[in-house]
């Protein structure tokens, strides 16, 4: 059975088990390895992606549930010339990470909040509390948030 969805702006047909978690379908069927598997329980945020305009954890929905939707991953924020998106750029400039494994989810969470027009620092930090970072880049990530909020 084929599932139709739009991924990073491109219409795709995925011929795979529709009941599998979206995280595996994105990584293995569509080769979007920037989507990270962290826990599979929706507790760490590493696999966060945009489903239409909303941030969702790709381990918490099936491929079938994404049918007809528009999915955006970190790969989709990179410009055609390879330039990073605004959130990616802000994190690079603050070197807001160590290993970088958690950053895909943090990028997508922040991107979703900014697209919603969220400008309240406290609310953004509250949203980021759904994403775990073990290397302790916390303070740097928040500095990148401040940079983003300082940009009109």
């Amino acid at each position: 059975m084929s599932i139709g969805l739009t991924v990073n702006g491109v219409a795709c047909l995925v011929d795979a088990d529709p009941g599998q978690p979206l995280v595996y379908a994105l990584r293995n069927e569509l080769d979007l390895k920037g989507v990270r598997f962290g826990c599979g329980d929706g507790d760490c945020g590493a696999c966060a992606v945009l489903i239409d305009a909303e941030d969702r954890q790709a381990c918490q929905m099936t491929l079938a549930e994404a049918e007809g939707k528009s999915v955006t991953t970190v790969e989709g924020l990179v410009g055609p010339d390879g330039a990073p998106g605004r959130v990616q750029q802000a994190l690079i400039e603050r070197r807001a990470g160590q290993c970088g494994y958690c950053l895909s989810g943090i990028v997508m969470r922040l991107e979703a909040m900014l697209r919603r027009g969220e400008r309240d620092r406290a609310k953004i930090i509250e949203g980021l509390a759904a994403n775990l970072c073990r290397c302790g880049a916390h303070a740097r990530i928040l500095r990148a948030v401040d940079d983003l909020l300082a940009t009109p």
Partner: peptide, 20 residues
């Protein structure tokens, strides 16, 4: 400055989990 360090990671660079 450590500008280079995260360039690849934020765009989805490969970890061991991503070897093909």
């Amino acid at each position: 400055g450590g500008g280079r360090a995260l360039n690849a990671q934020v765009k989805g660079a490969a970890f061991i989990h991503d070897l093909e």
